[in-house]
Each structure stands twice: as C-alpha cells, then as structure tokens.
Amino acid sequence: MILTRRTLLLGATASLAGCDRLARNESFREALFSAENFHKWAQRSLMARDALAHEFRPDQISPFFRANGTANPNTPDYKMIWRSGFADWRLRVDGLVARRLSISLPQLRSLPHREQITRHDCVEGWSAIGKWRGVPLKTILDGAGLRDRARHLVFHCADMMGSGQPYYESIDLTDAFHPQTILAFALNDRPLSVANGAPLRLRVERQLGYKQAKYLMRIEAVESLSSVGRGKGGYWEDHAGYDWYAGI
C-alpha cells in the first residue's frame, strides 16, 4: 500500500466533499444547526440567570478597540443626524409595550449609568477589552412597560447592509433584563465613535460581537421572531446562517 501525498489529498478532498454534500441535505442541516439549542440549554442551565461576564481592570483595556462590520453607515439619514451632533436623533421604543418612547441622547445621559470594562469577543476569534458606559436596558424597558406577550427585543439599526436593508439583531428577556445589558453611549470615557456605533449601541456581554448592535434607532418588543426579517432573529442569522444564540 503506497500512500502518496496525492492519494492523501484526494482522500481528504473526497471525504470533505462528502461532508459538504451532507451539509446540503435539509434534515442533516437541521440536525447540525440544532446544536445551537443544546448549547443554549446547557449554558443557561449551568449559569445563574444574572451571572456576570468578567469585568476587567482599567490597565487591561486594549490599546486600540477594533471596530468591525459597518465602519460608517454613510446613509443620507445618518449623515443628517451625525451633522447635528445627534441632536435630532431619537431612540424609539415600540411594539408590545404599554407606552411608546422616544428618547433623546441628553435624556439617556441623564438616566442612571452603568460602567463596565468587558471583553468583546468577535465570532471571528479576536477579542478587545473596552470600558463601556450606558443605561441599563432594564431601565428603558421598565419605563416602556413590556406587555405580557413580549418575548424578544429587536434592535433596528441605521446601517444598511449589502442587501439594502438595515442591520437588526434580537435578544430574549433573560438577556434583556441582565444587569450588564446596557445601551452604551461611551467607550473608554469618550462619546461612542462612528466606527464603534455612534450614538448608541447595545452591549450583551455574554454573547459574541455580532449581537452588539451598533447605530441603534429603534427597539421593538415582539412575541415571536418569525415576523422579523427572514425569521431567524438577526441580519447575520438570516443571511449567513449564524447562530441566534451567540453565547458560544
């Protein structure tokens, strides 16, 4: 038996091609994708509901906080609110709420803050540590009064993605009411830069970077994610097959 590099290569390619074919089979694909449910169940069972993400010391902050995804929404609407120094920007809160809200940046800044030095983990593999300041999402939700049917919060953003639709993400109520889930307006003691999501971005510290929606415009309380986008709960979930539960 002679194992040449060529046979090895052919063998590897053939078996990997077999895996690729398998992944295109609908029911196998479903089984493969359902691992997300196991991980979500396992992690939620293992951790206390309010278990905190690690908070770091100021000397552990990354020298430069890498921005990813959209670096500047650059749409006419965004340019307009950016030129006004976000004076005309409002965060709308609607959907399954008792009171619809429209909140300005000065109003947000006047609410009680939370500061946290946390690690941002990108799905790609890199990490950056930064100090965030913002308003706990719970404060806003308590103000709006979630209706009983509300199960998820959808974050609508100002940045347009390749398919000509704005970025969106969603979380469930466990993460929405978590003490570290904040609407951040400052990074490392400075107002949020455009690259990092000005004027406001979400921080959900027990999940990966793509859940940390930037350029927030509107928060919508919904019962089910099936009516949002293509039904998977987020732009990358719908368009690239990312897991909705990004604690892994």
């Binding site: 590897a12 690729d20 430069f64 890498r66 690690r119 990108c122 790609e124 990490s127 690239a240």
Partner: peptide, 29 residues
C-alpha cells in the same frame, strides 16, 4: 486576555487551503 489586529500576534498564518477545511469553501457559519 485580548488580541485583535492592532495587537501583537505570536503567530500569523495565511488561510488554510480549502482541501483541509470543512466546508471546502470559506464559511465561518
């Protein structure tokens, strides 16, 4: 604790070729 493009990497490689990866094309998801 951290590490991204602006930080010092102890190892930097090219992407592994498709015949070694699953799936055979680049798909992080």
């Amino acid at each position: 604790q951290y590490g991204a493009n602006f930080d010092h990497a102890w190892l930097e490689l090219d992407r592994f070729p498709g015949w070694l990866t699953l799936p055979g094309h680049y798909s992080l998801a």
